[in-house]
Structures are given as C-alpha cells and as structure tokens.
C-alpha cells in the first residue's frame, strides 16, 4: 500500500484541461504550493477550482489566474487579488460565491458519501435562488449538493507512505475535508514518514482517502497579514 509519487509533476500528470479541482487552504495558509507550481508549469487550462479563496496576484491560485488557466472559481471570498478582479470584470473568469460553511460542508458531504445536506446559510438571500428548500421544525433550509471533484489537492504537515495525514495548526482548514472529497486525492506533505511513525490516535485524514502522496519542497508559507505585539517592558 505505497502511495508515494516522486514529486508534484508526477502527482498531477494526469490532470487534464477542463478538470474540476479542489484546492485546500484558507487564504495562503495550508495551500498546496508544490502542486500549484506544477499545474502552472504543465499549462493545462479551463480548470474549475473549488477553493475558499483565490490566492493573491503572485501566490497561490493567483499564479494559475496569471496564466489564465482557470475558467471558474467556486469560493467564499476572493477579495485579495487584482488579476482575479480584472478577469471577472472582463468576463474571462466565471465565479460562484458560496458561504464558507456551506463550502466546507459540501466537501464533507462528498467524503461521507452523502449526496446533499440541508443548510440554513443563505436562506432569504440570492444564494437561495433556484435551490430546493425544505422546512424542518418551522425553519427553512437550503438543499446543498455534495461537490463532485475530479481531483482534490491538499497540503498536510506530516503524512506516511500509506497516505495517513496530519495537519498543523490552522493550516488544517479545508484540507481534510477536501482530502475526503476527491475522486483522486493528492497530498503534498512537509514531512513524509514511514507507516508506524505517526500515532494512529492523531491521524486527521485516514489514508483510505488519499491516492498519491509526496514530500513537498521549498515551502514559502507566505504570511498575508503579519501582526505582532511588542514585548512587555
């Protein structure tokens, strides 16, 4: 049960133009940097990307926007990216905005084998347009479908060769949810270890969900808002 591939290029080699991809991360925190670089290099296009954010101009999914590889973004917040804005206003890029919790839960539903879930978020708003509603205990809920993604691409802190994953701090965010949801799930990790090196009690994503894993390199881990406090005198 060895799921190790050599690197990002090999991990993404069968992703073709037109594919639907999930990409983990919140802002620039916990994004699959190596795979994004490899996708840019491969030059595939017409991609549909499901990711909470769209990166910044020169990092994260922003890099795939610079090279015009993205046809559609499905996100909850896309405010940090001028190229994104330009493509959206010119009609080159399609965007579907989804409440953040709904985005996460639609990933979770997919990984749990549930075709749809009922959620309160967006009731009475334009998000509800065209959606089936159902009343439970006097409250209306929207029916939201599980996502259907060709590939889920996630970034973990540690992983073993069987694909078991552990995430670090708030870099967990959407990663374990998307890891469960891909038809093919690719995990890049900061530290690739042998089976037995990770305590089974502390696995976040069981390897059954992961198809390919590799040791990532040269993580930049850019900080969007560097906030600090002064040492107390």
């Amino acid at each position: 049960m060895n799921k190790v591939v050599a690197n990002a290029e090999e991990a993404i080699k069968d992703i073709e133009s037109g594919a639907t991809l999930m990409l983990g991360g919140f802002g620039l925190c916990g994004i699959p940097e190596n795979c994004i670089t490899a996708i840019v290099k491969k030059g595939i296009n017409n991609l549909t990307c499901i990711s909470n954010n769209a990166g910044v101009d020169d990092f994260g999914i922003g890099l795939m926007l610079q090279t015009k590889q993205v046809k559609k973004m499905i996100s909850s917040y896309v405010g940090e990216n001028a190229e994104f804005e330009r493509q959206l206003l010119s009609g080159e890029l399609e965007v579907e905005l989804i409440p953040q919790g709904t985005l996460a839960t639609r990933c979770m539903a997919s990984g749990y084998g549930m075709p749809a879930v009922y959620l309160l978020a967006g009731v009475g708003t334009e998000v509800a347009n065209g959606k089936e509603t159902r009343n439970f205990n006097g409250k209306d809920y929207l029916m939201e479908y599980a996502f259907d993604a060709d590939f889920a691409i996630v970034k973990a802190w540690k992983g073993d060769t069987m694909g078991n994953l552990i995430f670090k701090d708030t870099a967990r965010n959407f990663n374990p949810l998307m890891a469960m949801a891909g038809k093919i799930t690719i995990a890049e990790v900061e530290e690739l270890v042998q089976p037995g090196d990770l305590d089974p009690n502390f696995i976040h994503t069981p390897g059954v969900y992961v198809h390919r894993i590799f040791q990532g390199v040269n993580y930049e881990k850019r900080i969007e808002q560097r906030t600090t406090r002064k040492p107390q005198a």
Partner: peptide
C-alpha cells in the same frame, strides 16, 4: 504562517485551545 485567524492575521493559541477543520468550525 500556519497559525492565523479568520482575518488572515498571525495569532497564537492559549492553554486549552483546540484546532479543527472548517466544517466542524461552522
């Protein structure tokens, strides 16, 4: 870089903090 808040600011944890994924959060 791995420890940020929803405003993407760098933050810290406290004794008794707990981390979880976005689905559990909502």
């Amino acid at each position: 870089a791995d420890m940020i808040n929803a405003g993407k600011q760098t933050i810290t944890t406290l004794p008794g903090s707990a981390l979880f994924d976005s689905a559990m959060s909502f």
